[in-house]
Design a binder for these strands. Structure first.
Lengths: 187, 187
DNA sequence: ACCTGAACACCGTTCAAGT
DNA sequence: ACCTGAACACCGTTCAAGT
């Protein structure tokens, strides 16, 4: 017989929470509204999670998995270091425009749970960037500096694309120039 | 006669709200907790403001005034362009560490009211930065790019100082190198 | 195991009534 | 003008009871 009364799983709640973050940030991960959206009463939520905090944790872990995988994949499309940097920078402004979960989470990073998830993602990216700059001929110390600089630019562009989008119309030229400057073997 | 029953003004509420933002972000601007802190009942709040939103607006306007003034003052301590850049970058990491209101607001910039206040502050800073790069001998277009780049780095460092503070132990060397690179007359 | 429905605490907002 | 105290709506959490 077909089961007309659909029963939910923890994963259903996490998926709904991810949607909520994308459109309304962490604050939108609210038990009662999610319950309404899922067609159940809020009481049933506590059959899956101890409290709202546990849902937030589980949802962030889910995002982290998805996100790290996507990043690694996009890096593997080319071996040329400069093209890899270009792809990374392009991701920044696109992410801001599309209003992705990552963009949201950056803005929620005063939350220790969010910061922990972002930190792991950031460290992975910094390692990759360092490798790229080493490939470009930089010494160890210089590669670390350039990697940090490049990632700071990435984060900053994400922010500026929201704040002053007009400034970034010339974005491609801006990024090209930055990469030329950062890519130079210097001392 | 001494007035033992202190009556509050709108400004008292705004000051308390600024303190709340510094320690707990926008979410901490909550009528009932503020009322408790001020020693009145929450009902009296509505004698000063129409609603919580109006308090947030007034508080952000107050911050903007204070903040723009501080920035302009710090820029006027020296005429040397490179030293001005250095001062700006040092502000970024210090701001993150001290947990200033600005650091908080950057993280709340998905709120349209916050974005409007930040946008005005950002535009003023970008203008100043452009002037500095022009002074360093860059053409108009290049100066605009470098200004945007420098400000992106500023914002990015603010974020990274929270996320991966260990990476910024070598901060002075990092900033110096960045400024050397960005300051170069190039093409 | 998952769900409902009622309960209570907390904060935003309103309002009648006090000074 | 500013304040109190009670009321109501909304969301987090608990719990007894249902399937």
């Amino acid at each position: 017989m077909v089961q007309l009364v659909k029963r939910l799983t923890a994963e259903d709640w996490e998926r709904a929470a991810l949607d909520a973050i994308a459109s309304g940030g962490l604050a939108a991960v609210a038990v009662e509204p999610l319950a309404r959206r899922l067609g159940v009463t809020k009481g049933s939520f506590y059959a899956h999670f101890r409290d709202r905090n546990e849902l937030v944790d589980a949802t962030l872990r889910r995002w982290e998995e998805i996100h790290v995988n996507a990043f690694v994949a996009s890096m593997q499309t080319t071996d040329e270091p400069l093209k890899r940097l270009q792809a990374l920078m392009a991701m920044a402004t696109n992410a801001a425009r599309r209003g992705t979960i990552q963009g949201r989470l950056l803005l929620e990073s005063d939350d220790p749970r969010v910061r922990a998830a972002l930190k792991r993602v950031t460290e992975l990216r910094l390692e990759r960037l360092e490798a790229i700059f080493a490939q470009l001929g930089h010494s160890n110390g210089a590669a670390a500096h350039r990697a940090t600089a490049a990632y700071a630019i990435y984060i900053g562009l994400l922010q500026l694309a929201r704040e002053v989008p007009e400034r970034l119309v010339d974005e491609r030229a801006l990024i090209d120039e930055l990469l030329r400057v950062l890519g130079q073997v210097h001392a």
